[in-house]
Design a binder for these strands. Structure first.
Lengths: 248, 248
DNA sequence: AAATATTTTGCATTAATTAGCAATATAAAC
DNA sequence: GTTTATATTGCTAATTAATGCAAAATATTT
């Protein structure tokens, strides 16, 4: 096998699998690892692959490795924009925290007159920027990680509310596992919020679909609406639709 | 799995869920926690995530507030710095909002272990940045102007507290008029805070001395400590000292 | 203050890289 | 078609990187 052939093969493998191991290549084309390494170095020098310890990575790998501040902002903005249409004047809306909710808060129209109830510091801050929105903060001990109020006080306060709509950014949602999260205190609060609202809408970028975490918030049946950046018809959403969720 | 791939995966997870636990990552990709920790450290070094005990947080999540231009910051910082010395480990401290309080929050030592109770969104946010400080948010309707919770709920919550120290940024203080402010709702909250604390310290840049506004919070006799950027001996402070205030 | 959990540190093990050298193959020159 | 120069490949040994383990030190929780 000629050197060029070999390198072409390597390149092909890289683009196919996004990453290759020197040992694997060495085995599959019966040349020493040294040779592979030399090839990979050459390909790296001419910018065709990214050489790493043990093998190489596809160049396109880089684009998702080096990434800007808020992950997937664009998709989150789409989700937020869709959500805006659910909100009507005069509504009482319970919301969580999370980056998608923050995006939503920023997208709310100036003219909207509604009451937002939240235990999230960043969310409350954003809501408070709007001239016609009334903000009620549900206080208690602040959980550092998530910057939201957690604890019995917050929960009993939430239970005393009857909101028209609950908006929650989800961490993980799955048809089998339901809606899950990874912080016990936060889960308690989210549970209470869902119960305290006549309707609950989940805001989630599609990547979080079909993933799960350790602590369960509720079943899919306990919520009403799922908002993702995907088209309503997307096949990924089918199982959720079948589970009874209204898709936006 | 190559090291970079793994780190990319970690980054992905962090972005997706805002936080990750070392144990979870270790399980899901079958490497030792040591390795995960080393990865997280590397990612933290290059500023991609924030490393915390037990895992890591998304970098984007926390940065909502931009430091804007604050009037007379330097003097406010002096006031804040003086105030820090009043705060001891284990204290329960009720605080208001205001730019001086924010400066104080930023100057608090990392090692301080205390509980801060506040109804101010920006103050709560700052307190929450400190690893050893417990933050209790006193929730209610958020007053837009001042970003603090006001209303009956907040006040009755405050009344249920007995704090060691109340820290208030003052708007106007005068030997004749006492302590005054210009927002009725905020005044109610401040009143309640003073009553709920065994000691009250006022934080004020000297410009605000000998000025008054329309709504009275309390008399000088009802508070204990006055902290300004001036020297303790300054003649401007004499009347306040005579009125029974301890000067810092 | 005791009990747990997490992090740090130093060390051992394995895998991967480098560098120099010899063997072989390829290309160019005669 | 030889011969000479150049490139390529594989091998060895020395070096460096990555990972896991265990004990000690810190944090965190109860």
């Amino acid at each position: 096998m000629l050197k060029k052939e070999r390198q072409a093969y390597i390149l092909h493998q890289v683009s196919l699998h996004n990453s290759v191991l020197s040992t694997d290549l060495s085995n599959s084309i019966n040349v020493s690892e040294d040779t592979i390494r030399r090839d990979l170095n050459e390909l790296a020098e001419t910018g065709k692959v990214i050489k790493v310890h043990g093998g190489a990575l596809s160049k396109s790998f880089n684009s998702f490795y080096l990434r800007s501040d808020v992950y997937n902002v664009d998709n989150k903005k789409i989700v937020a924009q869709k959500t805006v249409s659910l909100i009507k004047d005069g509504m009482f809306i319970l919301t969580g925290g999370g980056t998608t909710i923050i995006e939503l808060a920023r997208l709310l129209p100036e003219t909207l007159k509604a009451t937002f109830l939240t235990g999230s510091i960043p969310a409350a801050y954003e809501y408070a920027q709007h001239p016609n929105i009334e903000v009620i903060f549900i206080g208690d001990k602040i959980a550092k990680k998530s910057q939201i109020a957690v604890g019995g006080e917050a929960i009993s306060k939430i239970k005393a509310i009857k909101a028209d709509l609950c908006l929650l950014g989800v961490n993980a949602i799955d048809t089998a596992y339901g809606i899950t999260d990874n912080d016990w205190d936060v889960v308690q609060v989210k549970k209470a919020m869902i119960e305290a609202s006549t309707q609950t809408a989940l805001l989630s970028i599609s990547e979080k679909l079909n993933t799960h975490q350790r602590i369960k918030i509720c079943d899919l049946a306990d919520v009403d609406i799922l908002i993702t950046e995907l088209d309503k018809q997307d096949t990924i959403l089918e199982p959720f639709s079948k589970a009874g969720l209204t898709i936006f």
